[in-house]
Amino acid sequence: MHGLRRLSALSGGLLPSSRLWIVAFLLPAALMAVLFLYYPLIFIVRMSFTEKDTFLSPGGPLYTITNYLDLTGRYAPNILVTIKLAGLATLVDLAFGFPFAYILIRKVRYRDLVRAIMVFPMFGALYIAFGMRFVLLPGGFLTPILQLLGVEGAQVLYGLPSTVFAMAIFTFPFMVMNIGAALSNLDPMLEEAATCLGARPWQTLARVILPLVRSGVIAGCLVCFGWNVGAFAEPLLLGSLEEQRSLAWTLYQRGVVQLDYGLSATMGVVLLALAFSVNYLSLRYSRGGLVE
């Protein structure tokens, strides 16, 4: 009996084989995720159905769906502006990102240098928004050019274009890397074949390249959109009152400043739903999972 158990321990492979070990390996991560992610998220979902700050009142929480009615009524423009900003930034990323990715993959040999410089947006939207403020400021980098066009710096500063621009810079690497990954899987020989068959560059683009990198383009757009719906610093520092209605900033105002927990939590839930659904779709479009 004893010998048999030793044998099975050997033949059971070289991994610690009991189920207990799997649990032990994953437990810390699971605990952390449950305590600091899933419980808090469920918490705000529950809270989104309570009125104002009644969640902790001695009389018990007042359950209501007013918050959701408010959000789709009074605060509908906030949701729309959030989607509009994210959508516009995504379009800017796509327009500039596709040629960028194409040139990067097909023509550029100093790719690692480009990658290194492209980490700058990763340091955070705060620095981008802050830096752009300096750029657009009267007396900033762009002032001479703006004056030439007859525009005052301050006018451009608070508004849609600068907000969208800063958001686009922040998510540009996502777009480039998604499209770039699809393009590097595309054999250049197919483009040569199309050219030799008489296709003009735009025909090659429309009939060969675009259909074959479509999933990369879609994934890139969804990822950019998913990140940008949560934009906070850009609308706040660069936007006018209109742009500052974006959900992330409003939920901070309502929740932390005005202590309207119910409404703030509702905005959080809506924002979360937006981001999750978009990112879920993007994962469906990008290639396979990490572990199978």
């Binding site: 998220l41 992330a248 939920l251």
Partner: peptide
């Protein structure tokens, strides 16, 4: 998860 939502929750 948008950072603002994580922060709020």
């Amino acid at each position: 998860t948008p950072a603002a939502v994580l922060g709020l929750s």
